[in-house]
Design a protein around this nucleic acid. Structure first.
Length: 608
DNA sequence: ACGGGTGTGACT
DNA sequence: TAGTCACAC
């Protein structure tokens, strides 16, 4: 029920509300909580942060070790928490005997090796959940099974704060009567289609269809995937990734709250950009990562006019570090999208006051996040100073600045940012374009779901951007160059600092599990966010380790002009990373063999 | 059940 | 690469 109803029914009820900052919901409390739990779980095996409160753990190694060194059957006593497990296929009626049956199952000597591993997993997971509870005060639920799909399914079967196990022999029974809509990925349109188009309601029904038949209806990949999951087969690997791949900040403006003026849109974009930037700064500071693409999403409708439900296009551009830069670029992206949305007829000559459009949703997000190799302290400082530089707001400066912004500005030459006020402080900029994939590290993962948050203290969020003042402050200006043209060209050519980073090859993480992983998915509930903070150092450590791997780059990918734009200090630092042996034979970019001009194939001279 | 704020991945 | 769509928490 809604809060109001609840209050009416229970006047003394304690309702917890999501914190608000900058006029919008602030989820940092939850992000921090999630990170705390991940940092604990990641110690035990490969970990994948599946969402803000969910993780998957691949405990294969830990389980195998236990089986080899101290198998359950050799233990004199089994963890009480483990004995509380729900094991599918084992009846646990009356309260006294079931722990015995669980113990028997875990210690069964004649068990299939896979189930013996599961038995170890049960003990490990029980231990982990206790540790999470003790160290964070969050409880969590878990599923222990042979793959992600089954573990996820199981984790939701006994909540809160319990764990469920799927023995190999229980898979069929579990699945046959299970409504397909309960399976991850089938909760939406595909599940509906399966139901209405093929009459499939349960996974058991799905079992009747041949792989070919399913492929005819849903394509090769989806068809095969469906055929497999009906049999409890899921080859999905647990990704070793503890950090999010993107950051976003958005807000909806339902019904009467829809935005109707450019200046209002700009106001909210500024708020959203500010939050986004704060998070980017934390990421840089804590994880040494840089995002390189900024994307603007909006939802809109045009009152009255025909096809008022046309989609508002999303737009993106290179992400430049600096709050005002993000705000500026976001607004420019919006205007570019708006013109496209309104069509050739969107031009101004519309006498009456209010616009014909209504914005019901806005969001800005940052993606293509790459690690900065360890040891690049000057690069860190560079980006930090970038964000520190306040404003030098002069229209002339703005112009130049604009010319430099590739995508976001390409459109901004014309329109009026009139009413918008606020000096747009164009600072020196450095556009970042593109990046490369995730260099995952391998750790375990887990996810928790705070059920009741009693955290009323918004300040428990740990990142105060003291290191990355979001604005104002003295200007260190002169050490970075303000030129525009060169950077613009390099941006066009898609080369920049991040391009260099991206080639830093994630050291082959080896580690190739195959089948029969003990995968765990935990879901937690409840928790009183105590002010526990500094666990951040632990996180840093984890993240730091993987960065020590060597990295290489292709000389051919560094544009001379890009290099020239870098502060001397950074040019020097980069030089230390350059690996002559990686020099390509022919001009190529991104290793895809495509030729590219304007690329230097030699070490750029240091410039001061 | 529904809505808000996020986030990921497939596909074009 | 940019942009859309589906799905999930």
């Amino acid at each position: 029920m809604r809060g109001e109803e609840a209050k009416a029914a229970c006047p003394d009820i304690q309702l917890v509300q999501v914190p608000v900052a900058r006029g919008k919901a602030d989820l940092n409390t939850y992000r921090t909580a999630g990170s705390e739990v991940v940092s604990i779980l990641a110690q035990s095996g490969k970990c994948e942060r599946a969402s803000i409160d969910e993780v998957y753990l691949d405990l294969t190694d830990a389980a195998e070790s236990m089986l080899a060194d101290a198998p359950p059957e050799s233990l004199e006593s089994i963890d009480e928490e483990a004995l509380k497990s729900h094991i599918l296929g084992i009846n646990r009626e009356d309260g006294d005997d079931f722990k015995e049956s669980v113990r028997d199952w875990i210690c069964r000597k004649d068990a299939d090796r896979r189930d013996k591993l599961l038995g170890c997993g049960i003990i490990i997971v029980a231990e982990l959940r206790k540790q999470v509870l003790k160290e964070t005060e969050f409880s969590c639920s878990a599923g222990v099974a042979h793959n992600k799909m089954l573990a996820k399914l199981a984790s939701g079967m006994n909540k809160p704060a319990q764990q469920t196990v799927v023995p190999y022999a229980a898979v069929q029974e579990l699945l046959t009567s299970l409504p397909i809509k309960k399976m991850k990925q089938l909760g939406g349109k595909l599940g509906t289609s399966l139901q209405t188009d093929l009459g499939i309601v349960t996974v058991g029904d799905l079992l009747q269809f041949s792989e070919t038949k399913l492929q005819e209806h849903y394509g090769i990949n989806t068809g095969t995937w469906l055929w497999n999951i009906a049999r409890g087969i899921s080859g999905e690997e647990v990704q070793g990734r503890l950090l999010p791949k993107s950051h976003g900040s958005g807000k909806t403006f339902p019904g009467p709250r829809a935005l109707r003026s450019l200046s209002n849109v700009q106001h909210w974009l500024n708020q959203l950009s500010e939050e986004l930037y704060e998070r980017l700064s934390s990421d840089l500071e804590q994880n040494k990562r840089i995002a390189s693409t900024l994307t603007l999403h909006a939802t809109a409708f045009r009152s009255k006019d025909s096809d008022s439900h046309k989609k508002f296009p999303s737009k993106s551009c290179p992400l430049r570090y600096g709050v005002t830069k993000v705000q500026e670029d976001a607004f420019n992206l919006f205007q570019a999208a708006l013109r496209e949305y309104m069509g050739p007829f969107g031009t101004k000559p519309q006498g009456n006051k209010k616009e014909t459009w209504r914005i019901t949703g806005l969001s800005v997000s940052a993606s293509k996040i790459v690690d900065i190799p360890s040891g690049t302290s000057s690069i860190m400082r560079y980006f930090q100073s970038q964000s520190t530089i306040p404003s030098c707001s002069t229209s002339g400066c703005l112009q130049e600045h604009v010319a430099v912004t590739p995508s976001a500005s390409e459109s901004c030459s014309e329109q009026k940012s009139a009413e918008t006020e606020a000096a747009m402080p164009p600072d020196k900029d450095m556009s970042i374009t593109d990046t490369s994939p995730d260099l995952d590290n391998s750790y375990g993962n887990m996810d928790m779901v705070p059920e009741k948050f009693t955290c009323q203290d918004v300040s428990c969020q740990s990142n105060e951007a003291t290191e990355f003042p979001t604005q104002s402050g003295s200007n260190k200006g002169t050490q970075t160059k303000t030129s525009g043209q060169k950077i613009k060209e390099k941006s066009r050519g898609m080369h920049s600092v991040v391009d260099i980073f991206k080639n830093y090859s994630a050291a082959p993480r080896s580690k190739q599990e195959t089948q029969e992983d003990s995968t765990v998915s935990l879901t937690s509930n409840r928790g009183s966010l105590s002010s526990s903070t500094s666990h951040s150092s632990e996180m840093n450590k984890e993240v730091g380790d993987r960065r020590e791997t060597e990295w290489g780059y292709k000389v051919g990918e560094i544009d001379q002009s890009v290099f020239d734009e870098l502060p001397y200090e950074i040019q020097r630092e980069f030089r230390s990373f350059l690996r002559p042996n990686k020099r390509p034979n022919a001009g190529k970019s991104k290793g895809d063999g495509s030729a590219s001009s304007g690329i230097a194939h030699y070490f750029p001279p240091l410039k001061r």
